[in-house]
Nucleic acid binder design. Structure first.
Lengths: 343, 343
DNA sequence: GCTGTCTCCGAGAGCGCTTCCAAGCCGGTG
DNA sequence: CACCGGCTTGGAAGCGCTCTCGGAGACAGC
């Protein structure tokens, strides 16, 4: 029995090897599940590990493998939205789950200001993470361009403005969803279908608008008249619907670009004395659990499966990290109509 | 001119030192802002760093300093809530901001299941992070106890169940806020003040209840009669208010334990034909921007300053990490009443 | 009996950094 | 003139791990 040097110090691989009566190399092989190890050695090391409560030192491992085991999740958004929009909470939750299933640690970065962006750039360039998931929907966002040059595996959530060259992304079928929503309203016999759109500087919202436009066959003038932006907020949806009621008094249906805006739109319709769905049928977008099912009346909505989007992004990224062949650089996930009472 | 070995390879400290014409040791001193460096050496190294675009290798640094530069932010909560409650989005945002200001990277962990907890434990014990911010409000949560034994600097957000020994925490004055809310209702001349409380297994909600109780001077029977749990959800608030209207038909005021529940409570009052604030005055809790200001009528609420709570937690943790003396192990932040139209 | 092949193992180098230690240089002092 | 102390500097050790490389042993084939 040799005296324990310091019982408080964390055991190293050296200690494990000594206890198991093998070399450090063999102990390392066991930890990394190498096949070239005899059953006896494997057992001895396994026992030593659990007896000592050994935990590999991640910094040492990262130093030699040049892998950190961490993935950045970056949201490039003006501040207020990350507060308000339940969409973010869903994305964050989904990312946390998907990454922890892969035993990757999730480093969350919220980028609001140019300084934040500078910091994010330095951080991503600094080799602190092996890859990144990036959400940067806004038109004037510079981060996507910056990241593209970085030589770091990145998967985007949603289509970015500008060139797609060299980018991997997983998007939802916003255009198809918008089309689907509007076709559904047409199938109910509605003739004057207006659209409350999201911000014009996000492709998710212009894509939804395009889907509506394709379904109703609107020309530019009609688009000008029959749609109005509500900026992805409740209050915005309310204002937009008020405007539309003024401009198109005989409207009998509305496709609203998000559930949050739809909540506002419903309020505007209520205050105008229009009954939903009798006078005006309404379809939302997102199918957000805590909104769509609890509005009055419950909201028919287009579901985009956020969990699936994020888990596709993660598995795509993991393949990139492993240098495995990646099927497609660009995936578009389908959306489905969930019927409730508003349409 | 020597040939560049590999232009694509990241420069190391060795490269910087060579270019600056100093030793690696001196270059390191410059990077770590050591005072023992001549102005000439400082300038030469600084130039070399920017010319080469040098970025220190964080793994190598972590290996020798035994510091990762990362802080875990842990939420131990059943799944659904992290979706629904805007409170979480605020906490996450505040944490992201406060930590990035300290140049600490934020590793987000969402703990829902026992497996998650096991993984979190391993991770925190594994030396991947220098410290942690922990939010674990539920009574039966085991994580706080586990973390306490971990020898890892941790600051809790909110008071945990059980012993406080050895724990650092920053809490909001929930009891005081509940008292304040109820006193305000009394000052309006209200006599029958009921309470919609949050879940009984969170101290934030029982503290608010205690504040209400102290203000109205309720005995156990009165508490039984005049308060009802709404579980921190909109629907729960609605149901609880319906129940209270049945049990206490002559109620003329309500203190509701969160804005989300207050929204539901307002709906229940509306459907019962009670006017707010004429028939029933209502005070919420949280002063959540996107709720309180937009209910009908806008909600009087108790504001707890989440940004300040989290930044206190972070600076507390930073002091712990630096082995600086910490003023108090426990901080309780004040709450204030924000008057709008509901009371 | 000798060689070739296969499997498992250990010695040792080295990842990029910080930091201890000793050496060199300077001006001032006895 | 020898010596001392303060300042800056470079050499070198070492953080804990992975992985290459060659050696040792077992076994089959000639």
């Amino acid at each position: 029995m040799t005296a324990q040097p310091q019982p408080s110090a964390r055991p190293t691989l050296e200690d494990v090897a000594a206890r198991a009566g093998v070399s450090r190399a063999t102990a390392s092989r066991v930890l990394n599940a190498s096949p070239r190890v005899s059953p006896e050695a494997l057992e001895a090391v396994t026992n030593a590990v659990s007896e000592l409560g050994y935990q590999p030192n991640s910094a040492a491992r990262a130093l030699v493998t040049r892998r950190s085991g961490a993935v950045a999740v970056v949201f490039s958004e003006p501040e207020p939205k990350i507060f308000d929009d339940p969409h973010f909470a869903r994305l964050i939750r989904a990312a946390a789950r998907a990454l922890s299933e892969q035993d990757a640690q999730m480093v969350l970065m919220l980028v609001h200001s140019p300084q934040d962006q500078e910091r994010a750039h330095r951080f991503l360039a600094g080799g602190h993470v092996d890859g990144a998931l990036l959400f940067a929907p806004h038109r004037n966002d510079r981060l996507t361009g910056v990241v593209r040059k970085l030589h770091l595996p990145v998967v985007l959530g949603g289509r970015p403005w500008g060139s797609l060259r060299g980018l991997h992304l997983v998007d939802n079928d916003n255009e198809g969803g918008g089309f689907q929503a509007t076709e559904h309203l047409k199938s109910l016999g509605r003739k004057r279908i207006v659209h409350v759109s999201g911000p014009a500087d996000e492709l998710s919202s212009t894509d939804r608008l395009d889907g509506w436009r394709r379904s109703v066959g609107a020309d530019d003038a009609a688009v000008e008249l029959m749609s109005e932006s509500g900026g992805y907020t409740r209050q915005g949806g309310r204002n937009a619907m008020r405007t539309l009621l003024r401009r198109v008094p005989d409207l009998d249906a509305a496709f609203v670009g998000s559930d949050l805006m739809a909540e506002g739109a419903l309020a505007a319709l209520r205050e105008a004395g229009r009954r939903v769905p009798q006078d005006v049928a309404v379809v939302g977008f997102d199918d957000h659990v805590t909104i769509a099912a609890h509005t009055d009346p419950p909201l028919t909505s287009i579901r985009q499966d956020i969990d699936s989007q994020v888990s596709h992004m993660v598995s795509h990224l993991i393949r990139l990290l492993r240098d495995e062949p990646v099927r497609a650089k660009r995936e578009v996930l389908p959306t489905i109509l969930v019927r409730r009472e508003s349409a």
